[in-house]
Design a protein around this nucleic acid. Sequence first.
DNA 1: GGCCTACTTGCAAACGATTTGCAAATGGAC
DNA 2: GTCCATTTGCAAATCGTTTGCAAGTAGGCC
Lengths: 160, 160
Amino acid sequence: MQTICKWTMIPSMENACQAAKILKSIGARVTPARVLMLETLHSGCGLFTAQALHEDLPEGTADLATVYRFLALLVRKNLAREVTGTDGVLYYEMACSHNPSHPHFECRSCGRIYCLEGCLPEEWKHFPACPQGHGVESVSVVFRGTCSNCLGKLEKEAKE
Amino acid sequence: MQTICKWTMIPSMENACQAAKILKSIGARVTPARVLMLETLHSGCGLFTAQALHEDLPEGTADLATVYRFLALLVRKNLAREVTGTDGVLYYEMACSHNPSHPHFECRSCGRIYCLEGCLPEEWKHFPACPQGHGVESVSVVFRGTCSNCLGKLEKEAKE
DNA sequence: GGCCTACTTGCAAACGATTTGCAAATGGAC
DNA sequence: GTCCATTTGCAAATCGTTTGCAAGTAGGCC
Ligand SMILES: [Mn+2]
Ligand SMILES: [Mn+2]
Ligand SMILES: [Zn+2]
Ligand SMILES: [Zn+2]
């Protein structure tokens, strides 16, 4: 995972004890597991699965079930977003102010999901009128096709 | 399931033996189970799950595994589209010419998924340039919120 | 500091939609 | 009819996710 944002989930937060402050701000207890999970999330960006976060944690930090429960908590508190992949696997991403909601690209060939930050056309940001009177709260836009990586490989194979 | 289209999956098709013709057109064998499944699909519209289709079939038509295999075939042949719900469940819908790709609305409260036919703004039909050079082949747009049905119930409760 | 209670955790078992292996049945070409 | 690839039912496996529960812990209070 690569770094993109610096604990900006809560505006005007000091550098020290960020994890603890974030946890307190959502009324959750500060436990070693949660602090380590937040710190690990801090060092990464993009989409990740519960499994992936679990593997990135220092050995023995938390059980996989605990990771799932923590991610569900973050989603409930709007500190993370949940994306269901086509394969039914749950992906998460932090919802800090530097990482607003954005479209994703899912590769049909390799299955990888890319974040498309800052590429949503202006017009797409306004929800269209919903003809059946539903109360729209959010949109998710997912493009599908063949990613640049896989396109490259296919070209290479074609040459051989 | 409600009726919306009349075997228009294949242009200029006669009314008789439609199911058989459709199956032949995709190079699949014409079996009783497949014909009945197509006929059942014909009598419905909107999203459905493998389970739902299975329950709508005449008793003993096909095993649930067969339904799954048939739906996978239809998707492979572009006669059906597959949508993964937030809950990870697979939904299908027929991709006949009267039922082009469209956005969906998923209710956070009751979980129901609505088809939003003909409400996609013109601008949304043109894929935005994909900054990372991926080959975009399709878009899926899913709105989320509270459906009109649930909104009504909530209002009613508020009054009491 | 100790006490108390509600919240957290690890563990293992359950879950449930979907997939798969396999042997028997059958479609369709000849 | 013969033959072979395709299709099927059945039951078991899959696997990411959820859950029950007993033991552990955070943090408010005195
Ligand atoms: Mn993203
Ligand atoms: Mn639809
Ligand atoms: Zn790819
Ligand atoms: Zn609803």
